[in-house]
Computed example of a mutant assay.
Amino acid sequence: MDDVIPNDIPLETLLADEPMLTLPETAERLGVVITRVHDLLGANKLIAHVIDGKRHIPEALFHEGSHSTGKFVPGLITLLKDGGYTDEEILRYLFTEDETLPGRPVDALHGQLAREVLRRAQAMAL
């Protein structure tokens, strides 16, 4: 899978300046109990990055100022997970700059290029 997703930059570097939410903060943001966050992670509707042994959700998965991830984020995560991608590979894909978009796929998911990001992810998952 790594031949499709660039891996020349360590994931920790890609996510170094990203605001991250703990699972309790994510539950609060979504207005749900923490067990629902665990369910969303287990159902591949959310994705987490492990920092010091604890899972954190990148805040960029959420619409700015919103209490939701938007309709495309869960679908993209599920699509790539079903295609055999690991959490690290999905995060790497989402947070790696792509000059053909332009920008990062995670940012494009919240705008007019969301369908293009999904189309590319679907092609990758085949």
Rank of each mutant, 00 (worst) to 15 (best):
R36P: 04
L61E: 03
I47N: 07
S68H: 15
G53S: 05
L46S: 03
A48H: 05
L46I: 03
H38Y: 14
M1R: 12
Q122C: 11
H67D: 12
L101D: 02
D107Q: 12
D52C: 10
L126Y: 15
I51N: 13
T35C: 08
R104Q: 10
I77M: 02
L80T: 00
R36E: 11
E25Q: 15
D8L: 08
I90K: 10
L23M: 09
D87Q: 10
R92V: 00
L61G: 03
A27I: 09
V33N: 10
R29D: 03
E97M: 14
P105K: 06
V117M: 03
L15D: 00
A43E: 13
Q112C: 04
V32G: 00
T69M: 03
E64A: 08
K54C: 04
D2E: 15
T78R: 13
F95N: 07
T35D: 13
L23G: 02
D107N: 11
G31P: 06
L61D: 01
A123K: 11
L118V: 07
H49W: 13
I47R: 08
I57N: 00
K81V: 04
H38A: 10
V37M: 01
D3T: 14
T13C: 02
L23W: 05
L113D: 10
L126K: 14
T96I: 06
H56G: 01
A121F: 05
D17N: 11
E28A: 15
L113K: 15
T26V: 01
E12K: 13
K71T: 10
L46V: 01
R92N: 03
G53A: 04
D2I: 15
N7W: 10
L76M: 07
A60I: 04
Y93H: 07
L79V: 03
R29Y: 02
I57L: 00
F72S: 07
E59D: 09
E89H: 03
A27V: 10
V37N: 02
I9S: 01
A27Q: 02
K71C: 03
F72G: 01
L109S: 04
L109Q: 05
V106S: 03
A60K: 14
L79D: 11
E99C: 11
E97P: 08
P6M: 01
D82G: 05
I34C: 05
V4R: 13
L94P: 00
V4A: 12
D17E: 09
T96C: 04
H110W: 09
D87I: 08
K81N: 05
I5P: 02
L21I: 03
E116T: 10
F62S: 01
G83E: 07
E28T: 14
E64H: 12
T96K: 09
H63W: 12
P102C: 06
H49L: 14
M20A: 06
R36D: 09
A121P: 07
S66T: 12
T100M: 04
P10R: 00
L126G: 13
F95S: 04
G84V: 06
D2Y: 14
S68T: 13
H49F: 15
D17W: 09
P24E: 08
T96E: 04
P19D: 14
G42V: 08
T13S: 08
L14F: 00
L15S: 00
V73T: 05
R119G: 06
P19N: 14
Q122F: 13
R29F: 07
K71M: 09
R119L: 14
Y85L: 08
P19Y: 12
H63N: 11
Q122N: 14
E64R: 14
D87V: 08
S68N: 13
